[in-house]
Nucleic acid binder design. Structure first.
Lengths: 201, 201
DNA sequence: CCATAAACTTACCGAACGGTAGGTATCGCA
DNA sequence: TGCGATACCTACCGTTCGGTAAGTTTATGG
């Protein structure tokens, strides 16, 4: 029976998430975290090896959550349009309710190399997440659902780029509402293209 | 005649750019900058009010350069396809040669609020840059070049998202070559859409 | 030939940093 | 009742931080 344990550890994680999301890794002090969690500093160092280890725990959670969302949404099946719509609206919905995790995920994706702990191996997780979408698109391309003129990687870049930009926008401009309908229109834009078509089909 | 001035100031700016790009704002110390520039700390504080002021100078340069690139590329005219191609390939080309400035621009765009000096008013510059592209797209839409079913803002988001994602990719994976041809294919993807079309027109 | 101001220098400040040494309360278990 | 393990605590460490006070050199103009 582990009962007395999780309280403090989770308290620390929650406070750290808030602080890191608000100020980034380097600008957040361990003192701020323990103040926020209302624990002592050695309590933090009892549960985590160091500041970097605490941060890593959160980073991995963020990327793994993202991966889980991706997989669950894609498994709901349907054609590529339905899959992309599901993925995008699931990401939007989840991260609307978990803005801090989203912030952590992006700030490690785009961070300068020295801004974040050295051994933070999130490259692999970022790549894994991207490759999941890439594979989805590759398959759809082989099935004839997507235009074969494009390189599958370019297609994945295109979709991932549009999707991430909207997610970031949600972060930067919180009042800019982004919902299921938005997700549908983004996918429509990705699939149909922006150009005006004089004749259909 | 100001002659003796620019040497030290530019030395500091160059060293600061490198350091900030490599480690972000918070994780870069003033000491590292002055060591890199081979000047003394008070020499830095003679030319800049404080660490934040030095950073601001670089941020504004980064965003203004980006704006300049956008305008110059758009002014070369042509239809919306040519304009977007010009913009994208100009951005890719410029930032391939100025990776540090690109890093500064992105790390301030996506930074957590507390990671960067408070009064750093780059929101306006980011918005200005985005709105320039937005206006371009709006005009093209009115001219009938772009599909009127989409909201102009969504179109701009889509293009800006794709474009920025490729620029970021260039940052994260330096060996991933991105050139004029890539720019053309990205624009083609944006305009034509990813979906397979059984019949043309 | 000296006054002034620009462009620095050496030497240092107090505060905050990440992290720890060493002691303590509380538990299950023998 | 005792003994070790867990889960902390207070107090403090050495280092580095951003920033500055006060003195020095150099160019210029009167």
């Amino acid at each position: 029976m582990a009962k007395a344990v999780p309280d403090t550890r989770k308290l620390i994680l929650r406070a750290a998430l808030k602080q890191f999301a608000n100020a980034g890794y380097a600008a957040t002090s361990v003192q701020q975290i323990v103040d926020g969690a209302k624990v002592s500093k050695p309590a933090l160092y009892y549960h985590f090896a160091d500041k970097a280890g605490l941060f890593q725990a959160l980073v991995h959670e963020a990327h793994d959550e993202r991966y889980r969302i991706l997989r669950e949404a894609a498994e709901r099946g349907g054609d590529i349009r339905a899959q992309l719509e599901n993925i995008l609206s699931a990401l939007i919905e989840y991260f609307a309710a978990n803005r801090e995790l989203l912030r952590i995920a992006f700030s490690t994706m785009f961070a300068a190399p020295g801004e974040v702990p050295e051994d933070l191996s999130c490259d692999k997780k970022c790549e894994r997440n991207f490759e999941f979408v890439h594979t989805l698109i590759q398959t759809a391309q082989k099935n004839g659902e997507l235009d074969k003129r494009f390189d599958s990687r370019e297609l994945a870049f295109g979709f991932y780029g549009m999707a991430n930009f909207h997610l970031v926008a949600q972060l930067v401009m919180p009042d800019c509402q982004t919902d299921k309908k938005t997700a549908q229109r983004i996918v429509e834009l990705f699939l149909a293209g922006a150009a005006h078509k004089p004749r259909k089909k």
